[in-house]
Design a protein around this nucleic acid. Structure first.
Lengths: 209, 209
DNA sequence: CGCAGAATCTTTACACTGTAAAGATAACAA
DNA sequence: TTGTTATCTTTACAGTGTAAAGATTCTGCG
């Protein structure tokens, strides 16, 4: 019976921590990282402006929890994309999933790579980051013919950072509308589903397959 | 005799516009984009807090001029890198130059891709962006065997966006210290000069050459 | 039960921020 | 000289994050 709901308007909210995380995440989704405000988060949660700071130690503490959420979701998608097909297919699918995540959660995505806004060594963040990372590494290990727990060899390392960089850059450029003028596609969806796979094919798969 | 210097402490500064741009650029270099402040810029220029807004219409106006500076510098470097060697060599060199620019000017670089902070259709920005863009396009056209003024074919377009994405992503990940834990290189310089070319080779050049 | 002590949230306060509006000053043109 | 205009300052306001201190409720222990 830990569900006291928010109706109880006393000093003790019950589960204000979770409420704040959800409110902040929703605010991030609505207004983006630049529209995010700690006070507005508190307002939406129906508490005083200073309440979030008390729970999370400051803006960075709250944002770090949301970034961890983001890495969890990203890890889930990367894992899912890394389950079917040849090793090359899986890496390609993971690249697409990476960009898809960025398009689906632009606020979270931007936040996840703003180390000036995050508490880097928070366990929740480190663990979630590790999960996402491992999903990619596993696929590259398979491509390189290495066993699952091994250290990546030099070329594998280059491949991993390469696919990561390409997907990461494409995601950023898409979110920043930089690709609109060149590839005059319509929606981001169309761009993602046709252009990005083409790029991966042009760069990668022909060499791997 | 347009040089009245800043010593003249009157209402009319003389060339406050340029002074503000330089002060803002220096502040950006020192404290990064997140440490940038319009008031601090005014402070360094020795003028009132509201003076910058009057000249540039607001923060975005001033930042846009600095972003234009950034694109100019980037265009210069890309042009220089695209002058010697085979077409494949030049594209690789341009990729390295792109990342090098980001490492040398992190503040400017971040700013240049923050469309929420810039006035997109400011001529100075559009023109500088175009110059940088053209330098890359020219190299890809050469690789594709197309004439200089032509429209890129589909595969060339994919190549262009591909190399851009890879360099852009690598630059972002480097600046965000995300690569430190994987490729345990020392400095950013070392990473740039050895790791990034390796990636390009692994991904690209073997196919092009 | 009663009641310290701790946990939780609020209040207050402060130093910032960007910028709109109105005032002061200097340059300039007639 | 005198009016006009451009340039910069002053003032003011609505925001922001958060430190410090106060109010309230929960909790554990006698």
């Amino acid at each position: 019976m830990n569900e006291k709901k928010t109706a109880q308007r006393g000093y003790h909210h019950g589960d204000l921590r979770d409420t704040l995380i959800k409110a902040a995440d929703a605010l991030l989704a609505e207004r983006g990282l630049e529209g995010f405000t700690l006070r507005e988060t508190a307002r939406r949660a129906g508490v005083s402006p200073a309440a979030p700071s008390h729970h999370f130690g400051g803006t960075a503490g709250l944002l770090t929890e949301i970034a961890a959420l983001g890495y969890q979701e990203l890890a889930n998608r990367l894992t899912l994309a890394g389950e079917t097909g040849t090793a090359a297919d899986r890496l390609k699918a993971q690249g697409v999933a990476y960009v898809r995540f960025a398009v689906d959660f632009p606020g979270r995505f931007h936040l996840m790579f703003r180390h000036d806004l995050l508490l880097r060594d928070q366990p929740s963040l480190e663990q979630a980051t590790g999960r996402a990372w491992d999903a990619l590494e596993k696929t590259v290990l398979a491509i390189r013919g290495q066993s699952d727990g091994a250290e990546l060899d030099a070329e594998g390392e280059a491949m991993l950072i390469g696919i990561w960089s390409t997907a990461h850059g494409f995601a950023h450029l898409t979110l920043d509308k930089k690709l609109a003028r060149i590839a005059d596609c319509g929606s981001d969806d169309e761009m993602l589903d046709s252009l990005f796979p083409t790029i991966i094919d042009t760069l990668w798969v022909k060499k791997l397959g």
